[in-house]
Amino acid sequence: YIGKYVNFNEVYKGEKGPLDVNYWVLDYNLPKAKTYFPDQVHKMFKAFEHWFGPYPFYEDGYQLIDASHTGMEHQSAVSYGNNYKFGYRGRDASGYGWGMKFDFIIIHESGHEWFGNNITTNDLADMWVHEGFTNYSETLFVDYHFGEQAGNEYNYGIRKGIRNDKPIIPDYNVNAQGSGDMYPKGGNMLHSIRHGLNNDVLFRNILRGLNKKFYHKTVTSAQVEAYISEMGKFNYVKVFDQYLRTTQIPTFNFSIENGKLTYRYSNSVDGFNMPLVLKNGNTTLKLSPTTTAKTLVLKPGEEKLFTVDAIEKMFYVKAVNEK
């Protein structure tokens, strides 16, 4: 970078101890940067060290650098060009207002320190590991600072950016890059897995475990998929195949008659079996749908769980009430 840069710095008390933080800004941005940068960076570290574990580069420190382009996830030297505005250049990707509660570039590009820089894929075809997890880091940031409902709304809102134009994972060993859906669709897949687990302690341990097991390593999607299945104690192979290797949006078909629920998946890969957990207040119901129809006699109050809007906000499926 070429310009008249000035520096200010601090020591952040992180999960792993004191972390050197340096801010390099163009001289005319210094007055606003001195309050704006630390506020967003501290909030980023609080959320991401909670969910992902310690910042992976304590030895190198963390730097945020003014730039003329929008931003990039350079390891331990994140570049920034979001005009000191919340959202993505002043825009909210979610449509719910939550995207205007934080600086998208600082949060997203810093999220890559864990997924992209700490954990790096061997093949460009597996780039969803970088971008899907980092897209989901935005939801986790919103969830941490503004609550679960806010996180659900943010994640659901960015779904409108999914095109389903081609699979996220293309051919291997030919330097091919899959669909840009690796960002919002990857994030929505992880959100669906999380809510199907219905155990944020376990989900957090999976995220932290990934960053510990694959610390400063290159990986394949297969390794990441296998780790999530192992730690989640569920075989997610069909879930990953559905969202990473097809363009189909799975349909959750259901009907209720005289208190009896009939349900199944359609428009999906054979054997698609993503667990669903439906919640409303103190009522929780776990379902294990497959492509074969199942039935269940509902208990009092459980019928209220079956609203299309609530199901679709929690899971990236098309919910269809067939009654």
Rank of each mutant, 00 (worst) to 15 (best):
Y1L: 08
Y5W: 05
Y5R: 09
F8A: 11
E10C: 04
Y12G: 04
E15C: 12
K16F: 04
P18V: 06
L19F: 11
D20W: 05
D27K: 15
K32F: 04
A33S: 08
A33L: 03
K34T: 11
T35G: 06
D39K: 14
M44H: 10
K46Y: 11
G53W: 06
G53N: 11
Y55R: 09
L64H: 11
T70L: 14
T70H: 08
G71A: 09
M72L: 07
E73G: 07
A77V: 11
V78Y: 02
Y80E: 10
N82W: 02
N83E: 15
Y84G: 12
F86I: 05
Y88T: 00
G90D: 11
R91Q: 13
N118K: 10
T120C: 11
D123K: 09
W128R: 03
V129N: 08
N135S: 15
Y136H: 07
E138I: 09
E138L: 14
E138H: 07
V142P: 05
N152E: 13
Y156I: 03
G157I: 01
R159F: 02
I162Q: 05
I162N: 07
N164T: 10
N164L: 13
K166T: 12
I168R: 10
V174T: 12
N175H: 08
Q177E: 07
S179T: 03
G180I: 11
G180Y: 12
M182C: 08
M182V: 02
G187Q: 10
H191M: 15
S192R: 00
S192K: 01
V201R: 10
V201Y: 02
G209A: 09
K212I: 08
F214M: 10
Q223M: 13
V224W: 04
E230H: 07
Y236M: 00
Y236L: 01
V237C: 02
V237L: 03
K238L: 01
V239R: 02
D241H: 12
Y243L: 09
R245K: 15
T247F: 02
I249V: 15
P250L: 13
G259K: 11
L261S: 11
V269A: 11
F272S: 12
P275T: 01
L276K: 02
N282W: 05
L287R: 04
P289N: 07
T291P: 06
T295K: 14
V297S: 14
K299N: 13
K304V: 02
V308R: 12
V308N: 10
E312T: 01
K313D: 07
M314E: 09
K318S: 10
E322D: 15
